[in-house]
Amino acid sequence: MKRLIFSLFTAAAVLSGGLVFAATAADEVTVTDAYARAVPPGQPNSASFMLLSNASTTAHAVVAAESSVSKVSELHTHTMSEGMMKMRQVERIEIPASGMTRLEPGGLHVMLIGLNHDLQPGDEVAITLTFEDGSKRGITAPVRMLQMKKMQQDMGGMEHGRMSQ
């Protein structure tokens, strides 16, 4: 009997240990600084930005997004080539183990396509991120115009404009 109880106990410990081990990506990735961009009236699309932090030793990835304000949400990025900014859809946004990935203007973002209404400062957008293991995380992104503070810290080191003559 003792042995049986011991076995059960061990099994339970192993199982719960397994559960802890099997923490989902949604548990391990935290989302901060989320916001959606306010758009001019009638604008069909907008974008949402955020900081994804991965505290675990396993790499994770966002593979899909949904939002409360748009028909469709897609993962996109920008690259500069041939002197043009090119926006393209991406399959996934990687968050390295013990690392961070920032979604920001001019780079990775969640595209909100087919807005149900104009996004105005003060509104909130509910966004659900789906991770590579199928786990999901819901976040709330306030709607903002460009943030002066953040922008200065991001852009402080940019080169000056080329002055012709």
């Binding site: 043009m84 900014m85 852009m155 404009g161 002055m163 012709s164 003559q165």
Partner: peptide
């Protein structure tokens, strides 16, 4: 598309090209 901003002076002359992301 390219994302530079072109500054033209009071006389109509192109004077500066500010690249995308200029603060």
């Amino acid at each position: 598309h390219s994302a530079d901003t072109y500054l033209i002076d009071r006389k109509g002359k192109l004077r500066a090209v500010l690249p995308h992301g200029t603060a």
